[in-house]
């Protein structure tokens, strides 16, 4: 298992796609400076509004889209020139290959999350925020956003293995991500739509009674449920896939 992960990391490390991750802090900084919120009228921590506006666009759009690109990227070089054939004819089980790819993805997304909040911090420093950095809030939305993305990554990996083309899984991802903008405006639907969860989990204005910004019930049923569905679906599909 460890050896497969090492091999996956090696293949990824040498691909140019690695630079996609570096776009995250750039996007973050860009978002930070284009936000239209002004907190002159409010008597709250300066970081909050910055976080609110930056998290909004990032969690709604960029996070799910970039994870999709990453998923396609780590399957692309397998599709290109018979990589699957060669990989699966080695002494490996398909289950382990699937898990290794998934683990690589979620680690990358965690790195992305950290980079994003580094960007938030940089924006605040440049803007000259003097209020204390809200570590607890940032920590919650960093991990929360990551957890909420886990089911999406599972589906994106499934789709990336299924389709040989780079565009098809990306198109599916966009189609599923865009409705989020509408869905989050609805109290009723937003709790159930998996693609809305990263936003809700990173929405620092949400309920604070629970550990994260969404209730545990919702976290377990919607995020947990969709994770099991997508992960098991992709896992079983990969077991049967003829290469």
């Amino acid at each position: 298992m460890v050896s497969i992960l090492q091999s996956e990391w090696f293949k990824f490390r040498h691909s140019k796609i690695m630079f996609i991750i570096l776009t995250v802090p750039i996007i973050g900084i860009f978002l930070g400076f284009t936000s239209r919120f002004s907190n002159e009228d409010f008597e709250i921590n300066e970081w909050y509004l910055s976080l609110l506006s930056m998290n909004l666009t990032y969690a709604l759009l960029f996070l799910p889209l970039i994870t999709g690109v990453l998923a396609s990227a780590i399957c692309r070089y397998e599709h290109q020139a018979g990589g699957w054939k060669q990989l699966l004819a080695l002494p490996v089980t398909r289950g382990r290959v699937f898990i290794a790819k998934y683990v690589l993805l979620i680690v990358l997304v965690l790195v992305m999350q950290v980079l994003f909040f580094v960007a938030v911090y940089i924006v605040g420093m440049i803007k000259g925020f003097t209020d204390p950095f809200p570590m607890v809030i940032v920590w919650k939305s960093l991990v929360g956003g990551w957890v909420a993305t886990l089911p999406l990554i599972a589906l994106q990996l499934w789709m990336s293995i299924l389709f040989k083309s780079f565009a098809a899984p990306f198109a599916i991802n966009v189609i599923l991500t865009l409705p989020t903008i509408l869905v989050v405006n609805s109290e009723r639907f937003s709790s159930f739509y998996p693609w809305a969860q990263p936003f809700l989990m990173m929405y620092i204005g949400g309920e604070t009674g629970d550990t994260f910004y969404v209730p545990w019930v919702q976290l377990l049923t919607v995020v947990g449920g969709s994770f099991i569905l997508f992960f098991v679906g992709g896992y079983l599909y990969f077991q049967r896939k003829a290469v």
């Binding site: 040498h14 290109q80 020139a81 990589g83 054939k85």
Partner: peptide, 11 residues
Amino acid sequence: LVENPSYYPHL
């Protein structure tokens, strides 16, 4: 070695 050669083009 199955059919067409398998390789990772970026490596």
